[in-house]
Design a protein around this nucleic acid. Structure first.
Length: 228
DNA sequence: AACCGCCACAACCGCATGTCG
DNA sequence: TCGACATGCGGTTGTGGCGGT
């Protein structure tokens, strides 16, 4: 279907935002709130397209953004979430309060990729580059389980297998720590993890433990538990 | 001082998805 | 149900800073 351009390109500024443009955008959103991005530039007196305004606000001007370096804990959390979700930056960002998808995407491409490569891990598959079986970051689903919160398990309909509904999710992945089904009970103080928690959905209604990603800093944010 | 290459990150682009009449 | 529109998302590009030569 044909689409009109998102903005009148001939009459819009491009490139870096000026302080004045930032101030105008902030002032407008303070008064009118977020939304109506298409009409916002005109209303705010900005020669920018709506998408540009939205990006600028979401990625840099929002008051709740956490600027500055990523912590080691954030690094590891991003790696874990990426192993589960792939390049779903917005979903990953939803679990890192104060961080944006764009920020995480850039950080991944510039820092974490290199970090994983230096560990001998393929950043896209999270498997060892030398071809060995992945040791601790893989996803596996038990056949008995009916469906996870993302609806990614195989379903059986009249005994027939249906393909997973999340073809873009690497089902060869499993997140550690592994289930204890074939292992001794966890040591006192160690925790087994329910399936919700292995997906970073601690405290969801399905959580049956108090485990995974329970960072001491309380970094996790469950605003976006509902996946598309 | 000038040049070059690399890196980090801000911003853009095109497509997908959601919503509404 | 369909089309138009608004918004969101992920990949890619552009650019400024910095260090090395």
């Amino acid at each position: 279907m044909g689409r009109s351009p998102c903005c009148e390109k001939a009459h819009t500024n491009k490139g870096a935002w000026t302080k004045e443009e930032d101030d105008r955008l902030i002032a407008h959103i303070r008064v009118h709130g977020e939304g109506c991005w298409r009409s916002l530039p005109k209303a705010a007196g900005l020669l920018r397209c709506g998408k540009s305004c939205r990006l600028r606000w979401i990625n840099y001007l929002r008051p709740d953004l956490k600027r500055g370096n990523f912590t080691e804990e954030e690094d590891e959390l991003i790696i874990k979430l990426h192993s589960l979700l792939g390049n779903k930056w917005s979903h990953i960002a939803g679990r890192l309060p104060g961080r944006t998808d764009n920020e995480i995407k850039n950080y991944w491409n510039t820092h974490i990729r290199r970090k994983l490569l230096s560990r001998g891990v393929d950043p896209s598959t999270h498997r060892p580059i030398n071809g060995q079986a992945a040791s601790d970051i893989t996803i596996s689903f038990k056949k008995e389980e009916k469906e996870d919160s993302f609806g990614c398990l195989e379903e059986r309909n009249g005994g027939q297998k249906r393909p997973p509904r999340c073809p873009d999710l690497n089902l060869d992945l499993r997140i550690s720590p592994p289930s204890y089904q074939d292992e001794p009970e966890p040591m006192k103080g160690e925790r087994g993890l329910c399936f919700s928690c292995t997906l970073g959905l601690q405290k969801s209604k399905d959580c049956s433990c108090n485990g995974f990603l329970d960072l001491k800093t309380g970094l996790l944010d469950y605003r976006s538990l509902e996946m598309k």
